[in-house]
Amino acid sequence: MSQLTLKTEGDTHVVVTRRFAASPESVYRAHTETALLQKWMTGPDGWSMPVCINETKPGGKIRYEWSDGNGGGFHLTGEYVALEPFSRIVHVERMHLPDPTPDNHIETRFEKDGAGTLMTLRMTLPDAATRTAMLATGMEHGMEASYARMEEVLAA
């Protein structure tokens, strides 16, 4: 029931959907409260998010730092554009790898869906090449996580 979908749309969008067995209020809070975010937005297995700055107001700053526990890591900065409890969050973010990637404009919607919530996350990149670049740069980290998991499997 919690099947995640992820697809590109047009030249500049990436759209992610996911269902949760909780109210829109809970899902919204888990996306905006620092203590809750640090419990789940930790990335690949074994990683943590030691820094989570999250000023939940229009213009408020976002800074997430991830660590692999061995001195490796990367961070993301951004700003909130709009917050509508408990249905909608609009923010801009960029990864630092360490050079900043072009701005990714993200609208996250939470809609009541039966007893649960349907989340729709829509990323908008400035142009087709930026989306290509984002997917290519993210690929590096995705690969790393996959190789790490593969190592676990092989070691078992």
């Binding site: 995640l4 992820l6 419990k39 937005m41 930790t42 996959s146």
Partner: peptide, 27 residues
């Protein structure tokens, strides 16, 4: 890019599976 989308899907799925646990606790 298609291959990377698969990996992003996996990374997000890990985050959201953890979120399921956080939400169950909240409720």
């Amino acid at each position: 890019i298609d291959r990377w989308l698969d990996m992003l899907r996996q990374a997000l799925e890990q985050n959201y599976n953890r979120l399921d646990g956080v939400l169950a606790q909240m409720e």
